[in-house]
Amino acid sequence: MNKLFASAAFAGGLLASAAGPAAAQETIPLTIVSGHPEVFLWVKHMHETFIPAVDAALAETGEVKIDWTEAYGGTLVRLGSEAEALETGIADIAMASGVFDPAGMGILNITYAMPFGPTDPEMVTGAVEDALYSVDGLLDQITQETGVVYIGGGVAIDGYNIATKRPLNTRADMDGMRIGGAGPNLAWLDSTGAVGVQGSYVSFYNDISTGVYDGNIGWMTANVPARLYEVAPYWNRIDFGAMYIGGLGIAERVWDGFSDSTRAAFRAGAEAYAAAFFEEQAAKYAASEKTMLENGGSEVKMDPAEREAWIAEMRNPITAWRDAALARGEPVDAMLTAYRDTLAEGGFTFQRDYLAE
């Protein structure tokens, strides 16, 4: 009902605008949402960069003006339900992310299925988006399945590592340890003897301090603001790699009503959004690392031979993710190949060729 009503109202607005004077500017109400609060960079730059950039691009044509409603931090939609909110008409624009919505956007979790990849977030994002755009029919299939149009603005989290109460020099040091992490990350602990425990940044600090687990899988620019160095001072450089979390998506029912110039404005806004995200992320990483080291934290580099054995002996991490994508009828093998090969062309080769097994 909401979807039909929203579509009818949007179409009616277009007709009303077309019937008026040729120079009349159309105003479209749009709601942009996130289950995360603005403390996360990918949400912060929705407000600080994406919206102003879209407005500036639209102002050049004078064709359309957006009346924005912003709802972050779960005030309108809960985390992981963003795609559903776009499809049902509750919202219009959000982050399209497989990490937080594996049921609807699981195909976007490719980097989580291929750990020990590049640590450069921009390199990872570029390779993922190359796969999304180059695999024939993939983006159209995502839209058909979810009602969401991917418009770019892809971003990746800075490299994942493990923060713990004691240093991890070898895999033997991990045996029996309980490590908190999100669902896709816990499979990375295979072959180490560590036990993965479901957790998040909402609970990491308290859970580590009270002994629920001994550390967490996370990334620097989130660990340091959460002050996890106080309870898990060892930042163990496992180098799982930077992880792509998604890009900006807009409801298909809205996108279909846009002119080419309006679509171009939104894509320009997405491009500006990603550029601003990466610029601030790089600055925050350096500042966060400095803060951690100045406040009692320390970095530990796992023995390279131990890391190599870990990678070689873990169960193939792409298997379950690939099987789920194949069950949905998605061109997952073409996407995996495109991602791997794009990285290779850029100078990065996975130590283990997961696709060859």
Rank of each mutant, 00 (worst) to 15 (best):
residue 3 K to G: 06
residue 6 A to E: 07
residue 9 A to H: 05
residue 9 A to R: 06
residue 11 A to G: 13
residue 15 L to Y: 09
residue 18 A to E: 09
residue 18 A to G: 07
residue 20 G to L: 08
residue 23 A to G: 09
residue 30 L to D: 04
residue 32 I to Q: 00
residue 32 I to E: 01
residue 33 V to A: 01
residue 39 V to F: 12
residue 42 W to P: 05
residue 44 K to S: 14
residue 45 H to D: 01
residue 45 H to Y: 09
residue 46 M to L: 15
residue 48 E to R: 14
residue 51 I to V: 15
residue 52 P to V: 00
residue 54 V to T: 02
residue 54 V to D: 03
residue 56 A to N: 02
residue 56 A to G: 00
residue 56 A to H: 00
residue 61 T to R: 10
residue 61 T to C: 01
residue 62 G to P: 07
residue 68 W to H: 04
residue 68 W to L: 00
residue 71 A to H: 01
residue 76 L to W: 05
residue 83 A to V: 11
residue 83 A to K: 04
residue 83 A to L: 13
residue 85 A to G: 05
residue 86 L to N: 04
residue 89 G to P: 03
residue 98 G to Q: 02
residue 98 G to K: 01
residue 101 D to L: 10
residue 105 M to G: 02
residue 110 I to A: 13
residue 113 A to N: 06
residue 115 P to A: 11
residue 116 F to Y: 14
residue 120 D to T: 03
residue 123 M to L: 15
residue 124 V to N: 04
residue 127 A to Y: 08
residue 128 V to S: 06
residue 128 V to M: 12
residue 128 V to D: 08
residue 132 L to V: 08
residue 133 Y to N: 15
residue 134 S to T: 14
residue 136 D to H: 04
residue 136 D to C: 02
residue 136 D to Q: 14
residue 137 G to S: 09
residue 138 L to Q: 02
residue 139 L to G: 04
residue 141 Q to Y: 03
residue 142 I to H: 07
residue 143 T to S: 14
residue 144 Q to P: 00
residue 146 T to I: 08
residue 147 G to M: 13
residue 148 V to A: 11
residue 149 V to I: 12
residue 156 A to C: 03
residue 158 D to V: 05
residue 158 D to S: 04
residue 159 G to S: 14
residue 159 G to M: 13
residue 159 G to I: 05
residue 160 Y to P: 00
residue 173 D to H: 03
residue 173 D to F: 09
residue 175 D to A: 15
residue 175 D to L: 07
residue 175 D to V: 14
residue 179 I to A: 06
residue 183 G to M: 12
residue 183 G to Y: 11
residue 184 P to R: 01
residue 184 P to S: 10
residue 185 N to S: 13
residue 192 T to N: 10
residue 193 G to R: 08
residue 194 A to C: 01
residue 197 V to P: 05
residue 200 S to Q: 07
residue 202 V to Y: 07
residue 206 N to A: 14
residue 210 T to Y: 04
residue 211 G to A: 11
residue 216 N to H: 11
residue 217 I to M: 13
residue 221 T to F: 09
residue 221 T to Q: 04
residue 223 N to A: 13
residue 224 V to E: 15
residue 230 E to A: 05
residue 230 E to R: 12
residue 235 W to D: 12
residue 236 N to E: 14
residue 240 F to C: 02
residue 240 F to N: 01
residue 242 A to M: 07
residue 245 I to S: 00
residue 248 L to M: 11
residue 251 A to R: 05
residue 256 D to M: 06
residue 257 G to W: 06
residue 259 S to R: 13
residue 260 D to L: 10
residue 264 A to N: 07
residue 265 A to L: 10
residue 272 A to F: 07
residue 273 Y to W: 12
residue 278 F to W: 11
residue 278 F to M: 10
residue 280 E to Y: 02
residue 291 T to H: 01
residue 296 G to N: 05
residue 298 S to W: 01
residue 303 D to C: 00
residue 304 P to M: 03
residue 316 N to S: 08
residue 320 A to F: 08
residue 323 D to F: 04
residue 323 D to Q: 15
residue 323 D to N: 06
residue 327 A to Y: 12
residue 334 A to Q: 13
residue 335 M to C: 04
residue 336 L to E: 14
residue 336 L to R: 12
residue 337 T to N: 14
residue 339 Y to T: 14
residue 340 R to E: 01
residue 341 D to Y: 03
residue 343 L to G: 02
residue 344 A to T: 04
residue 347 G to K: 03
residue 347 G to C: 04
residue 349 T to P: 01
residue 350 F to W: 14
residue 350 F to M: 13
residue 351 Q to G: 15
residue 353 D to W: 00
